[in-house]
């Protein structure tokens, strides 16, 4: 009995330690980027020499403002499309019986199994040769949304499998029309899943290189600017911008943590 208890504690603390190590591993490069953003020389940041030149250049440089704006447009545009398709698609699959259900699930998930690079080049050639569309932010949003929809769908499916759809039946019997029912019952119980799907598909598109690169045409986003600036060495603005983006992300996490800590919003978790 005692041995079993010890084993339990060991495996719990062992896996917990692994998680901490993973966070360290994942965030070490981020920390490194933030560190270099304050360094005089990006390529040779040791020994440390502080400088805010990157931030100054970022403040005045038009290129990066535009790239950030384009990346945000791409991320939000793709996330809206993905969340929309994934929400109605996953509700259909979970709520209704149909012999086509399996086929639909496979179709929604198949972009997961196609590499970004392949999505990038195939949509480049397809748009160019078949649809006669030039590369621009629109075609990049579409190509990214294909990829993101699959992720969003998977996330929503996994989170909503336990939702009791008979709650919707109950609402309908008591007089709620379909839209009202969605607004009053379905949405309040499933919005964390939708938020998760939105955030993930935003992240995937915001900084996507391999899909966007082939579909953006002359439009510049953050990663394509980074790719372009590599030839003549990374500019100091990029780490500065990345540091700022991460600052916003950490702030959002802090807010989320406080909301959870004081049980203001549970984000779908039920005690």
């Amino acid at each position: 009995m005692r041995r079993a208890r010890t084993l339990d504690v060991l495996s719990k603390s062992g896996s917990g330690a692994l998680l901490v190590l993973l966070y360290v591993f994942l965030y070490a490069p981020i920390a490194y980027i933030i560190y270099t953003s304050f360094s005089k020389n990006i390529a040779w940041p040791f020994p440390p020499q502080l400088s805010l030149r990157g931030y100054e250049l970022l403040w005045v440089g038009r290129t990066y403002h535009e790239a950030l704006y384009n990346s945000l447009t791409l991320g939000i545009g793709s996330a809206v499309v993905c969340t929309l398709f994934a929400t109605i698609g996953s509700i259909a699959v979970l709520k209704y019986r149909s012999r086509w259900r399996r086929l639909i699930v496979i179709t929604y998930l198949c972009p997961l199994f196609v590499a970004n690079l392949l999505i990038g080049i195939s949509s480049l050639l397809f748009n160019r040769q078949v649809l006669n569309l030039p590369g621009n932010i629109g075609s990049a949003i579409i190509a990214n949304a294909v990829h993101g929809t699959a992720f969003a769908f998977l996330i929503m499916l996994a989170q909503m499998v336990r939702y009791d759809w008979r709650l919707d039946d109950a609402a309908m019997v008591f007089g709620a029309r379909p839209l009202r029912c969605f607004w009053e019952i379905t949405l309040p119980n499933t919005w964390p899943a939708m938020l998760g799907a939105f955030v993930i598909s935003f992240i995937l598109a915001f900084n996507n290189l391999e899909i966007s690169f082939y579909n953006l045409g002359a439009t510049q986003t953050l990663p394509s600017t980074a790719w372009g600036s590599l030839r003549h060495g990374l500019g100091p603005e990029l780490p500065a911008l990345a540091a700022l983006v991460n600052g916003v992300v950490f702030l959002a996490f802090a807010v989320m943590y406080l909301l959870m800590r004081y049980r203001i919003v549970s984000f779908g978790h039920r005690e």
Binding site: L22, P29, I203, A226, F253, M256, F267
Partner: peptide, 28 residues
């Protein structure tokens, strides 16, 4: 109740582009 936060913290590095992160790995 922090599960979602823990998972999102795994996804958050994607906010930084692959090139920056991989070259930072190179730097490390």
């Amino acid at each position: 109740r922090y599960r979602l936060l823990m998972i999102l913290a795994l996804a958050a590095p994607f906010f930084t582009g692959i090139i920056l992160r991989v070259s930072a790995l190179q730097g490390i």
